[in-house]
Nucleic acid binder design. Structure first.
Lengths: 120, 120
DNA sequence: TTATCATATGAACAACTGTTCATTCGATAA
DNA sequence: TTATCGAATGAACAGTTGTTCATATGATAA
């Protein structure tokens, strides 16, 4: 009984048993996709810097703009993305909108990533 | 004494103290950049699927191609990127090249990310 | 009301990314 | 050698992304 070959692969499958075993353990595509989207959002230096700053304190758009030397518009656009991914939350006080990290998971992921990068 | 405003921001800086405090704690740009590049590499669904598969077993390019229904060329290109980021390692045995995760950090990061995504 | 300030957003554009296709490389076997 | 197979790679291309610029909101103060 041969492994059913994917149309995209014109090679001979060499390790049928391994493939079958992995196939059973592999998470659903949707789940992997969501995880990758989470990582992708971290994966832009500007967003990463914004998150790092918000890790330390609640800040308004203008603070972030000045602190990171990024235009107000760019900060605002990125905050919109971060909010869409539920990584930051905001509250308005008069004209000023304050942003902070949505939950402690974000901070935890960063801590681990920094450990990983600085360890080697 | 006023906070020195960045040229990109035409707003009035509102929270000088907060900015000053965050500025001291903020990691260097280079470090944040490296972390974001690490995340970015995870941030593509194809690469994430390859890494998930390699988490379970050592596999050759052909195995991955068949298992994930991705062309051999696409798999090979992505493995090149993953290897460049030191996230996978490879060994050649005759015509076949076997890939596996570079270290246990990769697996750990995935575990946490999955927990995060599935928790909410 | 009008003016001003902080923020948000749409459009445009350049830069980047991931795939496909065609080809090449590297190793083995005939 | 020549043929074959698994893997790697360069070029091209479509799709995506992040920034800038201009403008629009939304809230406050005059």
């Amino acid at each position: 009984m041969r492994f059913e070959r994917a149309e995209h692969c014109d090679c001979t499958v060499i390790h049928e048993d391994a493939i079958k075993m992995v196939q059973e353990k592999l998470p659903e595509y949707q789940l992997i996709y969501e995880v990758s989207q989470l990582f992708r959002t971290f994966g832009d230096p500007t967003r990463a810097r914004i998150l790092c700053a918000l890790k330390e304190a609640e800040l308004c758009v203008c603070d972030l703009s000045a602190l990171l030397s990024i235009s107000q518009s760019a900060v605002s656009h990125q905050l919109r993305i971060l909010k869409g991914m539920r990584m930051v939350k905001s509250r308005r006080n008069g004209k000023v909108v304050y942003y902070s990290l949505a939950d402690e998971h974000i901070e935890a992921l960063f801590r681990i990533a920094f450990t990983h990068v600085t360890e080697e």
